[in-house]
């Protein structure tokens, strides 16, 4: 699948878009950009050091939304340490440091687009949100 198709798939029909009420076992974090109107709420359920369920909702551009969906897909059923490593790997990619492309799975689709102006901020937005939850939990 081409990058564009992957992004549009996650943007228009993400399975991680919140579609029901979530109980208190979910932790919520709001992540928003200072330079644009992107705003996402991320909901994570952690059980025994593992993310067992994840959703998001909010209003954001195609890049931020699809990036959030792809991030949550790669977090589900992963240990917090694995998620941390995934995030670090993504950070390495967007900051031009050596990274493992294979382990990024679909998140690699942002490799090119983040070179355009402000879009690095869009792609990274959900990551900065999820990191807040990890910092509290790890």
């Amino acid at each position: 699948m081409e990058s564009r198709e992957v992004i549009m798939k996650h943007y228009t029909s993400s399975p991680y878009k919140k579609n029901k009420n979530l109980d208190e076992s979910y932790q919520k974090v709001t992540t928003k950009s200072d330079s644009c109107i992107d705003r996402l709420d991320i909901f994570i359920k952690i059980e025994e050091d593992k993310i067992v369920d994840a959703y998001f909702e909010g209003e954001a551009c195609a890049i931020a939304t699809s990036s959030c969906s792809i991030l949550l897909e790669n977090c589900k059923n992963k240990s917090l340490n694995e998620v941390k490593q995934f995030i670090e790997n993504f950070e390495n990619m967007i900051n031009n440091y050596p990274y493992n492309e294979e382990e990024l799975h679909e998140a690699v689709v942002f490799k090119e687009i983040i070179k355009q102006g402000n879009r690095k901020t869009c792609a990274y937005l959900p990551y900065s949100g999820l990191k807040q939850i990890l910092d509290k939990s790890l």
Binding site: I37, D38, E59, A60, C61, A62, G117, R119
Partner: peptide
Amino acid sequence: FSQDVAYYLNKYKICVRA
């Protein structure tokens, strides 16, 4: 989403606010 449209117009050097 309005911001996506603004990004699109930006590619053609049109500055609008979203």
